[in-house]
Design a protein around this nucleic acid. Structure first.
Length: 218
DNA sequence: TAAACGATTAGCT
DNA sequence: GCTAATCGTTTAT
């Protein structure tokens, strides 16, 4: 499934990781199916960097009031109803840029929220965007959805663009995988209780480790 | 036009 | 563990 990393998409100073680039056929399923399979895949923004996905959450338009698409299409969430494998970026709390990957078929309104990743390769661009010491690669760099957006330098101009050439953002499968855990989602006031958060078991690049430790919704 | 509300994080206690 | 800061989007007048 998918195609190999396009050579044209590599940057001399910051090579895009080798592997199979996931495309619309991978994302064209409900987000609770795509979510767990994304764990361990590589999120990479051309020329900036990225890492291995360690935490994502699925949002479904039906029976899920926490999903932005639950109340139908608005100007803000329009990108969420776009083609599978496109990007939905929105501003949270007036500050943070949160990254979602659109799943399922056109106009369904299902997406996966990227919450954390473990950095790979050169982190100079990422740490610079975060305002951290050059080369920083600790959890402070990319644990938490707001930090992910800031590290990658996301902006609303990327909203609605497709993964790949259009946006420079790629999801790459390099064949490696780890154990995937599942718990309830984080930071929402409605629709919690649904086990739609997926994470890499044992990784420090996961938020809310406390509640996982207590065995909540394991 | 006004009010309320967050898919959060940093900073305290 | 708890709370404040922060401001665009949505929803209600």
């Amino acid at each position: 499934m998918g195609v190999m990393t396009p050579r044209a998409a590599t940057d001399g100073l910051l090579p895009t990781p080798a592997g199979c680039v996931l495309t619309a056929d991978f994302f064209g399923r409900p987000s609770d199916e795509v979510g767990p399979e994304l764990i361990g895949k590589i999120l990479w923004l051309r020329g900036v960097g990225g890492g291995r996905l360690t935490e994502v959450e699925a949002y479904l338009p039906e029976n899920d009031p926490a999903c932005h698409a639950f109340r139908g299409l608005t100007r803000r969430n329009a990108a969420m109803f776009g083609a599978p494998g496109s990007i939905y970026v929105y501003r949270s709390y007036g500050i943070h840029m949160l990254l979602n990957l659109v799943c399922d078929q056109l106009s369904v309104g299902s997406a996966v929220l990227v919450r954390s990743f473990e950095p790979l390769g050169d982190t100079r661009m990422l740490s610079g965007n975060r305002g951290l010491p050059e080369g920083e690669r600790g959890v402070e760099l990319s644990r938490g959805p707001g930090r992910v957006g800031q590290a990658l330098g996301l902006h609303l101009g990327m909203n609605g663009l497709g993964l790949g050439e259009a946006s420079g953002l790629y999801i790459i499968d390099d064949g490696q995988s780890g154990a995937v855990g599942c718990t309830t989602r984080i930071g929402i006031s409605v629709g919690d209780g649904l086990p739609l958060r997926y994470y890499t078991i044992g990784s420090a690049y996961v938020t809310g480790l406390g509640r996982i430790g207590r065995g909540e919704r394991a």
